[in-house]
Design a protein around this nucleic acid. Structure first.
Length: 270
DNA sequence: ATAATAACCTGAGGGC
DNA sequence: TGCCCTCAGGTTATTA
């Protein structure tokens, strides 16, 4: 479900509701996520939520006792519920606040994660080696150029590699490469500095527009207040296999790269 | 060390 | 209606 725009949308939506609130208790119905959810979390109480932030696709709920690290995997979702709303299938955890609100974690495929750390979450093994945020000053053309020179994978796999840059999943990799007029199959070391410049700009533009639209709802993404994201209406290649390029009108090409659906225009993207 | 692939799960949709 | 197959927004662990 979530790439960076969906996680950012989720982050913004829960931030205003839960910041400053106190965790009354955590109800864990299914600890078998990507990694076992620490059962000690069910003993957590009276923890004040100091901040809600995002690093890559991880949400960080920092309390004065430690930090909850939440990842939504492929099908995860957080929503704001109340005590009256009964839990449903796949509602694996409830973070119950003293004001009666519940932050409810739902994840049919259980690829997501809920972890706990009492030290700096950015130093957690899962976060420590992540590449720069796409909107950071560190992510710029000469950085991407120098990293791409050393790698022998194709450019699509490079930009989806979280050690190079975080937050670019399959949808936005396809979209950014179309925007930058670069073929997903190009060897990353064949890119010029000019092309890296175009790609950095394209990644930022696509992600920024998707965040502004509230993310991309393909089948089931809803933000924590129940609203879908509207960026699916603006997708130019992803999900448009067998249709025509919006620029040059020829039929889009559809292939698999590393097992992931890849759609591009072999005329516009060189 | 780097790069391809297997693995973790459930559910939806298509073909027969 | 049901069975089998493929596919899906991610990421790590394993293998070559």
């Amino acid at each position: 479900m979530p790439e960076l725009p969906e996680v950012e949308t989720t982050c913004q939506a829960i931030k205003s509701v839960i910041t400053g609130q106190v965790i009354h208790k955590i109800i864990l119905r299914e600890p078998r996520l990507r990694w076992p959810v620490p059962l000690s979390l069910t003993k957590l109480k009276s923890a004040t939520i100091i901040s809600v932030t995002r690093r890559a696709k991880y949400l960080l709920l920092t309390t004065h006792l430690g930090t909850l690290i939440i990842h939504l995997g492929m099908s995860g979702r957080l929503n704001i519920a109340t005590l009256k709303q009964p839990h449903q299938k796949h509602d694996h955890a409830d973070i119950v606040l003293t004001n009666g609100h519940i932050l409810r974690y739902t994840d049919p495929r259980r690829f997501g994660a809920i972890l706990w750390t009492t030290t700096d979450p950015l130093q957690h093994p899962l976060l420590k080696h992540l590449g720069p945020e796409p909107f950071s000053n560190e992510f710029k053309a000469n950085y991407l150029f120098s990293r791409s020179q050393k790698m022998k994978t194709c450019i699509k796999q490079l930009i989806m590699n979280a050690k190079i840059v975080v937050g670019v999943g399959n949808i936005y990799a396809n979209e950014a490469l179309f925007t930058a007029c670069i073929s997903p199959l190009r060897k990353s070391h064949s890119l010029t500095m000019i092309e890296c410049q175009a790609l950095v700009k394209a990644i930022r533009k696509v992600l920024r527009k998707a965040i502004a639209a509230g993310g991309t709802t393909l089948k089931d993404f809803l933000d924590p207040t129940g609203n879908p994201g509207y960026f699916s209406q603006e997708l130019k290649v992803y999900g448009r296999e067998h249709q025509n390029c919006l620029t040059c009108k020829i039929q889009l090409s559809s292939i698999k790269i590393a097992g992931r659906a890849t759609v591009y225009c072999h005329s516009c993207q060189l």
